[in-house]
């Protein structure tokens, strides 16, 4: 058993768990944050993507113990004070989701990719960057649109702030 303390969405969460406990299980079962989903067993679907120390990772492919001491942001931690994150808002605006199951992972992947590319994101790059996220409902068309719109909006906001 391992005692694991992870700062999740700014709040310290501690639990004693089996060493084999995956980060996704810690988040869902110990932290009670069920927005992070599990859609496969082979680290491909990306429904479980969260940010660990600022980087998008698959929480199904990381032990909770590996994340001991880390800062984790999940889908629940993205909106601030009831205000949707621009990526969340763009998914809504552009109908970038249907059943919603892949959506948390998609949004966390999208924010990570925008963090890295900013306004340089074009359609081809977005599609390539989504290699680690599978959606069965949307055909990706509106997800790509939403991410592009969010990247542009965030770049605009950043520029305005300068």
């Amino acid at each position: 058993m391992a005692t694991v303390t992870i700062t999740v969405n700014g709040k310290k969460r501690s639990a004693t768990v089996e060493d084999r406990t995956l980060l996704v299980n810690f988040l869902r079962e110990n932290a009670g944050l069920t927005g992070t989903h599990v859609g496969c067993d082979t680290s491909q679907c990306g429904a479980c993507v969260v940010h660990v120390d600022g980087k998008a990772v698959k929480s199904c492919t990381m032990l909770a113990a590996q994340a001991d001491g880390a800062e984790v942001v999940t889908i629940e931690g993205l909106a601030q004070g009831g205000e949707l994150h621009p990526v969340q808002a763009a998914f809504h605006e552009h109908h970038g989701l249907q059943c919603g199951f892949c959506t948390p992972g998609m949004i966390m992947a999208a924010t990570d990719m925008i963090n890295r590319y900013g306004a340089k994101l074009d359609e081809a790059t977005i599609r390539k960057e989504l290699d680690g996220n599978i959606c069965r409902c949307t055909g990706y068309h509106n997800i790509v649109k939403a991410i592009k719109a969010a990247a542009d909006a965030m770049a605009g906001t950043a520029q305005a702030a300068e």
Binding site: T34, G35, I75, Q88, G100, F101, I107
Partner: peptide, 15 residues
Amino acid sequence: KRKEDRRFITGKGRY
């Protein structure tokens, strides 16, 4: 725009 979106994009869907 979809009424159901808010819960899904904030991780509050209930599966």
